[in-house]
């Protein structure tokens, strides 16, 4: 029972039912590895990837950089693109912003 002059109300906030997944560990060293970039098509992400690719090769000895673009910024990447990145890369970084 509520005390007098009190009202009982319900929280409108939803709850998550998902299970927790373990994120795959990053490679311990990037030397000789292939790094993938999933481009969200937003302006300048392509230039950021180009700049990062140079730095990754120079500083980490990264072997190769794979750069793939989504069709547009607001829809998920096509399964073929994800499959290609998963096959070719040791680590994939996706753009998520303006």
């Amino acid at each position: 029972m509520s005390p007098p002059d009190c009202i009982r109300v319900l929280s409108p906030v939803g709850e998550v039912r998902r299970r927790v997944l373990t994120a795959p560990a990053l490679p311990p060293d990037l030397r000789g590895k292939t790094i993938g970039f999933l481009d969200n098509t937003k302006p300048n992400f392509d230039k950021l990837v180009a700049e990062m690719a140079g730095l990754l090769r120079e500083r980490f000895g990264v072997k190769a950089v794979v750069h793939r673009r989504k069709a547009n910024a607001s829809t998920p990447a096509a399964p073929e693109i994800l499959a290609e990145l998963a096959k070719a890369c040791d680590l994939v970084l996706a753009g998520s912003a303006d």
Binding site: S2, P3, D5, C6, I7, R8, V9, L10, S11, P12, V13
Partner: peptide, 11 residues
């Protein structure tokens, strides 16, 4: 049966 968190607030 309702499962939401209940708050008691001044009426």
């Amino acid at each position: 049966t309702l499962r939401s968190q209940v708050l008691e607030l001044p009426d």
